Amino acid sequence: MIGKLKKGSSFAGCIRYVTGKDEAKILASDGVLLGTNAEIVQSFELQRQLNPRIKKPVGHIALSFKPEDKPRLTDDFMTKIAIEYMQMMGIIDTQFIIVRHHNTDNPHCHIVYNRINNESKLLSDRNDYRRNEQVTKALKSKYGLTYGTDKSNTNTRKLRNAERAKYEIHNAVKDALKGADSWQKFKNELAKRGVLLEFVYKDKEQTKVQGIRFCKDGYSFKGTQISRGYSFGKLNARFEGMENHVSPKSNSTLQYEQGYHKSNHEPSMSDSSQDPWDGISSIGLFASANAQTFESFPEDESSKKKKKKRRKGFSF
Rank of each mutant, 00 (worst) to 15 (best):
E299R: 00
N37L: 00
I15N: 08
H102K: 08
S252N: 12
S296T: 04
I98W: 02
M88D: 11
Q274Y: 09
P248S: 12
K312L: 15
Q292A: 08
N37C: 11
D271E: 13
K174P: 02
L197I: 02
P248G: 03
G8W: 00
S141Q: 13
A62P: 00
H110S: 11
E257C: 05
H110I: 12
S227R: 05
E23D: 14
R160K: 09
R157S: 15
K178R: 12
C109F: 02
L235T: 05
R193G: 09
N236F: 07
R238A: 09
E133G: 04
S272M: 03
F239M: 10
Q292E: 12
R48E: 15
D128G: 04
N117M: 10
K305C: 13
F232Y: 15
A287H: 04
S268T: 09
R53K: 13
G59P: 00
V18H: 03
H265W: 04
Q47Y: 06
K6I: 05
T19Y: 02
L33K: 10
F286A: 11
N117F: 03
Q255M: 08
K6D: 02
L27N: 10
K307P: 00
G31A: 13
G59I: 07
Q87E: 14
K151N: 12
S288Y: 04
A62E: 07
K55W: 02
E295R: 00
R160E: 14
K178Q: 15
S303C: 08
L5F: 09
